[in-house]
């Protein structure tokens, strides 16, 4: 069993937990993930590692309550324990050799963008960070992100906090203002990553995205997490989870992540208002799930 050492609500839907897992804490690097299972009946759910404390032996996870398992986990408390917690899985984010980086997080994706920014910042890179949210109420990790970046730009869709607009607008503005990035890291809802990759494509800026497809084992065994990258099938668990954003087939990924939506089960996608289209899709999906209940 793996103990929940501490719990903090970051916003209404997003929870932070420190889990006692000393071996993983010792080993994990930015970009890697764990798989948890609440109890005998639960699904195996992948979550990116947000932070670690090797001395205390804890691993920090930040998650949005969107499916059966994450909702159940969000209701657990300090001192409770979950059945399974395995990792660190996947490859660490490449941080060597970059001088000028822009790390972009969307919504709860900021929880995954944060450790990458932190690792790059510590490695001596100049780090700009753009963190996008729907509105003021759901802004998370602002102090933490500010501490690991040279400039933090917070945007909200409705302008209720920071700058009004989408992260894509902000990145475009920063590029237009003459910032020369040698790497952009984009982590958030799939449509956000897709459109961000389109912003950087004309400039040929290397763009890494972190993918979170449906998976079971996380060690290359099930093939459920396969994504098409550069026309080839890759497994996010062992070949990723970071991939070249200019090569990923995001539309296919979006379809595959909606695999079990109709069955109202755990889904890896996050609510996103960035695009009317995605809003509609998620509304349809939640309608479908209501009917299924």
């Amino acid at each position: 069993m793996f103990k929940i050492v501490s719990k903090r609500q970051l916003n209404e839907a997003v929870t932070l937990m420190d889990i006692e897992a000393p071996y993983i804490a010792k080993k994990a690097k930015a970009g890697q993930f764990i798989i948890f299972r609440i109890d005998e009946y639960g699904e195996r759910i992948p979550l990116t590692i947000a932070d670690t404390d090797p001395a205390k032996g804890t691993v920090t996870i930040i998650f949005q309550a969107v499916g059966t398992s994450t909702i159940a986990l969000s209701k657990m408390n300090e001192g409770d324990a979950i059945a399974d917690f395995v990792g660190p899985l996947g490859n660490a984010t490449e941080i060597e050799g970059y001088k000028n980086v822009c790390v972009v997080g969307g919504g709860v994706g900021c929880a995954i963008a944060y450790p990458s920014a932190k690792a790059l910042f510590k490695a001596g890179a100049h780090v700009d960070m753009i963190a996008g949210f729907r509105n003021k109420d759901i802004v998370i990790l602002e102090d933490e992100m500010r501490a690991v970046s040279h400039n933090l730009y917070v945007t909200t869709d409705d302008g209720s906090y920071g700058e009004k607009g989408f992260v894509t607008n902000k990145l475009q503005a920063l590029i237009d203002a003459g910032n020369k990035y040698d790497l952009v890291i984009a982590i958030g809802p799939i449509p956000m990553m897709k459109f961000l990759a389109e912003v950087t494509r004309p400039y040929g800026i290397k763009t890494l995205v972190s993918l979170n497809p449906i998976m079971i084992d996380g060690t290359g065994m099930c093939g459920g997490c396969r994504v098409t990258v550069g026309g080839k099938i890759r497994f996010a668990c062992v070949d990723g989870p970071d991939f070249d954003g200019h090569e990923v087939d995001f539309d296919e990924l979006m379809r595959r992540n909606s695999y079990y939506k109709a069955q109202e089960r755990e889904s890896a996608s996050h609510p996103c208002r960035m695009l009317a289209a995605s809003e509609k899709a998620s509304a349809a999906a939640s309608e479908a799930s209501k009917e299924d209940k």
Partner: peptide, 26 residues
Amino acid sequence: AGLPSFMGIEGESLIGVYSANEYLTR
């Protein structure tokens, strides 16, 4: 030997395509 092979044909990433490993593991 747990790494599943795929055929490399068109349509293997469609919804409803499983490796036997994934299907049986589920």
